[in-house]
């Protein structure tokens, strides 16, 4: 066990020394991996920002039921009772017409306009959250409510949410395809880097094999190199995206200020960043493993 640990520690130091010995080539390799990873990563970050923005602005689709203007308090109570008994409803809220008017005054700053109306133009209403948010379930509920007495109008605000959802799903697919392509590129880059290293270290590998080195022993520093390359590339990619967001946020801040709001793009979360680096490291390791297995086989005896 102690021996095993020592060998791994030695492999790691050999690897880091190898990286340091050719700083320019190492930096270039790491940059290639970093840039390759930054592209899908940036897309992903923008997507998660859009998603959270959408969630802030549009919570779960709701059904609004507006009663007729001539509906009495008893009619409202009747609807209230029906809703309470309804199994498909998670929760609902009654909004009396007076409260609706007060809210409208407060929110939009339309108090002058409303005051000039003389009477309250708003009906009593219910805002309903369904248990199931599929469009089919919501539409079924809408049709049901429409048939209830003294219900003037039922509004379902799920259309734009559905459109947004479909768009986000498309975005997610694009991120996946991009990520898959660039993951492949990462494996290819490490494969080639390791192949070149094996070629330049032919003599060393040959001697090591002749004096009794096992394949895992010879492979190990290459695997470490691949993993370190991937990991450093992952960190670079993350740094690129972070710097990009920082620049964008700077601009975005002054832009949104002009519109009287403030909005900033969120950075990649720490767990996401950590899994990105781990993923990149694993891919580097995989590329190195493929390369080493292929290119070391020729040293075996005939």
């Amino acid at each position: 066990m102690k021996n095993w640990l020592r060998q791994h520690r030695r492999s790691l130091t050999t690897t880091l020394a190898r990286l340091a010995r050719t700083p320019l080539a190492s930096l270039l390799n790491i940059s290639v991996v970093g840039v390759a990873l930054a592209l899908p990563l940036a897309f992903y970050v923008i997507l998660t920002n859009l998603q959270s923005l959408a969630q802030d602005k549009a919570p779960t689709p709701q059904i609004s039921v507006f009663l007729a203007m001539d509906a009495q308090a008893s009619d409202a109570r009747e609807i209230d009772n029906r809703l309470k008994k309804h199994a498909a409803i998670a929760k609902f809220r009654f909004i009396p017409r007076d409260q609706a008017l007060a809210e409208l005054k407060e929110k939009a700053g339309l108090s002058d306009v409303i005051a000039s109306l003389g009477r309250n133009p708003l009906p009593n209403g219910f805002v309903i959250d369904a248990r199931e948010n599929t469009s089919a379930a919501l539409e079924k509920l809408r049709d049901e409510f429409k048939a209830w007495p003294k219900v003037e109008h039922v509004q379902l605000d799920s259309t734009w949410a559905r459109r947004l959802d479909a768009t986000l799903q498309l975005g997610r697919l694009i991120v996946l395809v991009l990520a898959a392509l660039l993951a492949f590129a990462l494996v290819a880059v490490t494969f080639n880097t390791i192949r070149l290293q094996i070629l330049t270290q032919r003599a060393e590998i040959e001697v090591a094999k002749l004096i009794g080195a096992t394949n895992p022993f010879i492979r190990r520093p290459f695997l470490y190199y691949g993993a370190v390359l991937g990991l450093a590339g992952g960190i670079t990619g993350w740094a690129i995206v972070w710097a990009g967001l920082w620049l964008l946020n700077d601009r975005l801040g002054s832009l949104t200020q002009l519109y009287g709001t403030s909005y900033a793009l969120r950075h990649l979360s720490l767990p996401d960043a950590a899994s990105l680096c781990a993923f990149a490291g694993a891919l580097g390791w995989l590329g190195a493993w493929l390369s080493a297995s292929r290119n070391l086989a020729e040293f075996d005896p005939e």
């Binding site: 060393e204 002749l210 075996d300």
Partner: peptide
């Protein structure tokens, strides 16, 4: 092939071309 390294460790090898690093 995986057992061959352990056979080699029984030997000390001197090569015609030395094979020094």
């Amino acid at each position: 092939a995986s057992a061959i390294p352990f056979v080699r460790r029984n030997f000390g090898l001197m090569f015609q071309d030395n094979k020094l690093l």
